[in-house]
Nucleic acid binder design. Structure first.
Lengths: 122, 122
DNA sequence: AATAAAATTAGAATTATTCTAAATCAAAGA
DNA sequence: TCTTTGATTTAGAATAATTCTAATTTTATT
């Protein structure tokens, strides 16, 4: 694992937000002026392939990266804000129910966040 | 609802696959030579905002469109193939568990499909 | 028919991401 | 230590998906 890969992983683990490649790039730059966005994409792709990071894709937003601990997500339909929510792990239940050798799953719950509920904008 | 919107909705309902904007565009063209891709995007955005279609985004693939009947998806980690699976509706359970006024949810199950399991390519 | 509003077109622009080729770096053996 | 080989990174072009803008067309309304 290269220096950059290690740092990127650390950035993802340290953040409670869900960072895009661009945001990770900006943070990585802070202690490695020279890096280039493509390097971040390269490393993220490799970390993802190794199963060391999780990728969250939501319509209308760039992919965001997250740690791999099993947890679910709340996503605001209005502003796109993504937050973590810890629900019971469904993997086994789903395996039984479907009979399919499931690797993992991704549960995204749509709602309208507090902020957007108050600021009745739409 | 305009002619185009109606047709697009019909195309989505008629298809058992999960079509991208591009694919919908190609089908719409069959009986409306003049249409342009932007029109398809416009209409899809409006149908989506009205809650008449569902949008499925998966990393590495263009957004795909689906009918809004509550159902879940299997997605092959290898080839990206998307298929429907009907599991119990969790909306109420999630509302109780979280106390959050949930609009809907999106459960995507990752696995390796038959084809990819046989053709041990990776 | 005249006006207003909405939808569509055409094509440029933007965003996110990937690719290519050259340059650099790192590890391993002579 | 020098050299080779392979992996990583850089720089920047290329691509893919989607959005935007402005002009035009269509549709509905007076």
């Amino acid at each position: 694992m290269t220096e950059n890969a290690k740092r990127i992983l650390k950035i993802i683990h340290a953040s409670s937000e869900h960072l895009s490649a661009e945001q990770i790039f900006l943070r990585l730059k802070e202690d490695n002026q020279g890096v280039v966005l493509a390097t971040v994409y390269n490393n993220l792709a490799s970390l993802y392939k190794q199963g060391l990071v999780r990728k969250i894709s939501a319509e209308g937003y760039p992919d965001r990266y997250d740690n791999i601990r099993q947890h679910d997500h709340l996503i605001c339909k209005n502003c796109g804000k993504l937050s973590d929510i810890q629900l019971e792990d469904l993997t086994e239940k789903l395996r039984e129910q479907t009979g399919i050798p499931i690797l993992s799953y991704d549960l995204k719950i749509h709602y309208i966040c507090e902020d957007c509920r108050n600021t009745q904008s739409s």
